[in-house]
Nucleic acid binder design. Sequence first.
DNA 1: AGCTAAACGCAAGTTATTTGCTTTACGAAA
DNA 2: TTTCGTAAAGCAAATAACTTGCGTTTAGCT
Lengths: 188, 188
Amino acid sequence: MTPLTGSRPGGRSARIQQAVHEATKELLLTTSRDDLSVPMIATLAGVNPTTVYRRWGDLAALLSDVAADRFRETEPPVETGSLAGDLSLWAEHFLEEMGSGPGRSYVADVLAGDSSGENTGICAKYAMDAITQILARFPNETAPPVSEIIDHVAAPILYRILFTKERPASGYGDRLVARLLGGGIRRF
Amino acid sequence: MTPLTGSRPGGRSARIQQAVHEATKELLLTTSRDDLSVPMIATLAGVNPTTVYRRWGDLAALLSDVAADRFRETEPPVETGSLAGDLSLWAEHFLEEMGSGPGRSYVADVLAGDSSGENTGICAKYAMDAITQILARFPNETAPPVSEIIDHVAAPILYRILFTKERPASGYGDRLVARLLGGGIRRF
DNA sequence: AGCTAAACGCAAGTTATTTGCTTTACGAAA
DNA sequence: TTTCGTAAAGCAAATAACTTGCGTTTAGCT
C-alpha cells in the first residue's frame, strides 16, 4: 500500500501518506517502539488518528510500511571491477546495514506488520535486484544463479541477525561469498 | 520467561502461566490474530487481564512466548541410517513444519514480540540441537560443522518462508543438503 | 465547470491498557 | 505446624487507544 497504490493516488492522499511516514521516522529517532502510538504519530503529522487507522489498520502495519520504504531507497551496489569483489562488498554492506541496531529493528518491523507479504516481498526484491545488477556486470563469467546467491549469502546473514543475539562479525559476508565462489573441492 | 523463570516458580505462578498459554493456544485455533485480545485470553484462562499485562507486557510478547514454546516440545530427528539421509529428512521436516500456514505464523510471532532475543534464541537452539544430535550419530564421518549446516540448510529455508510468498516446494530441503554434502567440484 | 466517490475530519461510543491499592498464597523460618 | 515476609494476583477507577457513523472536502472524470 505504501507508494501510490490507492485508487486515488494523487494530491492529498500522497501528501498525507508522506507526512505520516515522515512523522513516524522522526519519532522513531527519539522514542522507543513501546512508547510509540498512532495518536502520537498522527498529531506530529498534523493528521487525524482516524485517518491512520483507516489507511494502515494498526501501528504494526504502519511501521512495516515505513521500514520497507527504507529499503526501497537504496544505492546500487558499489563496483570493484570483479565479480567476487562486488559480491563481497555488497555482502558486507548488507551485513552492516541489516545488522546494525536500527537495521535489525527495521527488518523485524517489516516482518511483524506484514499480513499480505507485500513488504517482505520488497525486502526480498531489494536483495535480488542488487545481486542481479552485479551479475549483469559480468556476463562472461560463470556465476551461480541469483537464487543460489540469495540462499547462501543473504539468507545466512539474515538468519544470524534475526535469530541470534550477537550480530555476525564483519568478514562473515566475505567468507560466505568466498565459500560460494570457491566452488571446487572443499574439506569442510 | 516462559518455563519457570520467575523468582517464585512453583505453584500459582506456574499454574497461571500454563492456563494463559493454554487459553492462547485454544483461541488461536478459532480466532484470527487481529481479533485476539488480552482480555479475551485472560477471561478464558480465568485470570485477571492485569495479570497478563504485568507478566507479559503486551499481546505480542505473549504470543512470542507461546510460539517459542511450541518449538521447545519437539521430537528428536528421525534416524535413517546415514548422515545424508538424516539431514535430508530433517530438512524436509523443518520445511514442512515451518512452512505450513500455522508454522509460518509461529515464526512470525516469535520474531514480532521478542524484545530480549530470548525466544528467537530458543528457535535457533531448536535447529542447532537437532543438527548436533544428527552429527553425533556419525562420529566417524567427515561432516560440515553445525554452523555451516545452519547457514546453508536452515537459513535458506527460513529466508524463503519469511520473505517470499510461495512456500518452498518440498524437495528444496533435500537439494540444500545434497548441495552441502556433495562438496566436490560444482559447475553451478 | 459540475459530478461522483474516495478519503479525511470530527465527535461520540466502545474497548483496551495502566495504575494504585488490597488481598491471596508460596516458601521459609521458628 | 504455625507464623511471617514477600512476590504475584485481584479489583476498581482512570486514562488512553481504537472504532464507528456521519458530514465535509477534494481528486479524478466527463
